[in-house]
């Protein structure tokens, strides 16, 4: 079973890092994972995206063909990638950054929630919590372990809180 996840937004939102953490957690779960990214020369502000493929088998083609999960953190990213999602695929958006009329979307205030924790930059961890809880492609334990390992030491607690917030939001939503 091959799961294709695409996270897209702009530079500075931690899009690439989120993909990296997802892939790393999948490996920890004993799965195969490939993560690729695309970004412009500007490290902040330009379009950025990260793609993660998770599978039980060896992964040949390393890119998303049709996404099982699209996370869109900007209007541009949503408009560009919405057409390339599987019929039953999940589309997750930051409700304050993407304006849409579609109703079957999972609309979450990632950035706002991160703001309540005092740091907008951990929006990507909130998103990961929501993603892990809603898709169950990888385990929350692996994800937490990877966060502990990969983010700067003084932000570990903050990121874990943000991650929990994401999970919590999904539980309440159900």
């Amino acid at each position: 079973m091959r799961t294709e996840i695409r996270i897209a937004g702009f530079g500075g939102q931690g899009v690439v890092l989120a993909g990296l953490l997802l892939g790393e957690a999948a490996i920890r779960d004993g799965k195969q994972a490939v993560q690729t990214q695309s970004y412009g020369p500007e490290s902040r502000g330009g379009a950025a995206r990260s793609e993660v493929l998770i599978s039980d088998e060896k992964i040949d083609y390393p890119k998303v063909i049709e996404a099982d999960v699209l996370v869109a953190l900007s209007q541009e990213a949503f408009d560009k990638f919405r057409p390339f999602v599987k019929e039953n695929g999940a589309v997750i958006i930051d409700r304050d950054l993407v304006k849409v009329k579609e109703d079957r979307l999972r609309s979450v205030p990632f950035t706002k929630m991160a703001d309540t924790l005092g740091k907008k930059v951990v929006a990507n961890s909130v998103m990961l919590g929501y993603l892990v809880a809603s898709t169950r492609v990888i385990s929350a334990e692996s994800m937490q372990a990877v966060i502990r390992e990969k983010v700067p030491k003084h932000t570990i607690d903050l990121n874990l809180q943000a991650f929990d917030k994401g999970i919590e939001f999904w539980r309440q939503e159900r």
């Binding site: 990296l20 892939g23 195969q32 994972a33 490939v34 993560q35 690729t36 990214q37 992964i59 390393p62």
Partner: peptide
């Protein structure tokens, strides 16, 4: 650049 920036286990 594709292989260089790709992450895998």
């Amino acid at each position: 650049g594709e292989v260089g920036h790709m992450r895998e286990g």
